[in-house]
Simulated assay, not measured.
Amino acid sequence: MIINAVLGVALVVSLITDIRSRKILNIVTFPAILFGLIYYSIADGFSGFLFSGAGFLVGFALLLLPYLLGGMGAGDVKLMAAIGALTGISFVLYSFVYTALIGGAISIFLIMKKRGVFNSIKSFFFSVIYLRSSLGSLIFPKEKQNSIAFPYGVAIVFGTVCAFIWGGF
């Protein structure tokens, strides 16, 4: 199906550019969004436009808050919106869940790699036991560390591939 081909091209190009330059290009996401809206409008009329438009809005809304909080770039939001425009609401929701799980696993791996496995486990149990209360923070101040960042487009691409392979839960 042509939608799957457009989605596949958008995902592959976004994966490559996000790894290389930490950017997901508008020249990839905007045409994918437009293609989804136009394709479904031609194929199913106004109901097709609503299908694609609703998928776009849900995909956009899912990552809008993390973007506004500074946790990710606008390209990630637009890529998820493009996935929604091309596949609809239910697929983009499944894709988002897989993306969150994969992104969380990548984050845990990177944290453990940077801080060391033992320090990560010790820090986790310390946080759980003492709940990092105000008194605990005064006695054991948090270390100032650089934040750990990674191209989240990687998680989006692999989450979408998982949704495509395994579908819903």
Rank of each mutant, 00 (worst) to 15 (best):
9 V>Q: 06
9 V>I: 15
10 A>F: 01
12 V>S: 13
12 V>C: 11
12 V>W: 06
15 L>C: 09
15 L>S: 07
15 L>K: 04
16 I>N: 08
17 T>S: 14
18 D>S: 10
18 D>P: 05
18 D>R: 05
19 I>H: 09
19 I>N: 09
20 R>D: 12
21 S>G: 07
21 S>H: 12
22 R>D: 14
22 R>G: 09
22 R>N: 14
23 K>S: 10
23 K>M: 14
23 K>R: 14
23 K>W: 10
24 I>N: 00
24 I>R: 00
27 I>H: 08
28 V>F: 02
29 T>R: 05
29 T>G: 08
29 T>V: 11
29 T>D: 05
30 F>K: 10
30 F>H: 13
30 F>S: 07
31 P>H: 08
31 P>G: 08
32 A>F: 03
32 A>W: 04
33 I>A: 08
33 I>P: 03
33 I>Q: 03
34 L>M: 14
34 L>Y: 12
35 F>P: 09
35 F>H: 10
36 G>L: 09
36 G>R: 03
36 G>M: 06
36 G>S: 09
38 I>E: 11
38 I>C: 11
39 Y>K: 12
39 Y>D: 08
40 Y>C: 07
40 Y>I: 07
40 Y>H: 14
41 S>K: 12
41 S>T: 15
42 I>Y: 14
43 A>L: 15
43 A>M: 14
45 G>D: 07
47 S>E: 15
49 F>T: 09
50 L>H: 05
51 F>D: 04
51 F>V: 11
52 S>Q: 06
52 S>W: 07
52 S>E: 07
52 S>M: 08
53 G>S: 12
53 G>K: 11
53 G>T: 12
53 G>Q: 10
54 A>D: 12
54 A>P: 06
55 G>A: 12
55 G>W: 09
56 F>I: 10
57 L>M: 15
57 L>H: 08
57 L>S: 13
57 L>G: 08
58 V>R: 02
58 V>L: 13
59 G>E: 02
59 G>W: 01
59 G>I: 03
60 F>L: 13
62 L>N: 01
62 L>C: 12
62 L>I: 15
63 L>G: 00
64 L>H: 05
64 L>C: 05
64 L>P: 02
65 L>G: 00
65 L>F: 10
65 L>N: 00
65 L>Y: 06
66 P>D: 06
70 G>H: 02
70 G>M: 05
71 G>R: 06
71 G>L: 08
71 G>K: 07
75 G>F: 00
75 G>A: 04
76 D>F: 02
77 V>H: 00
78 K>L: 11
78 K>R: 13
79 L>Y: 02
79 L>C: 07
79 L>R: 01
80 M>A: 01
81 A>H: 01
81 A>N: 02
81 A>I: 03
82 A>K: 04
82 A>T: 12
83 I>S: 07
83 I>V: 15
83 I>R: 04
84 G>H: 05
85 A>T: 06
86 L>S: 05
86 L>Y: 03
87 T>K: 15
91 F>P: 00
95 S>C: 03
95 S>P: 01
96 F>G: 08
97 V>N: 03
97 V>I: 15
97 V>A: 10
98 Y>S: 04
98 Y>A: 05
98 Y>Q: 07
100 A>I: 14
101 L>E: 04
102 I>R: 01
102 I>P: 04
103 G>P: 05
103 G>F: 02
103 G>T: 02
104 G>F: 09
105 A>M: 14
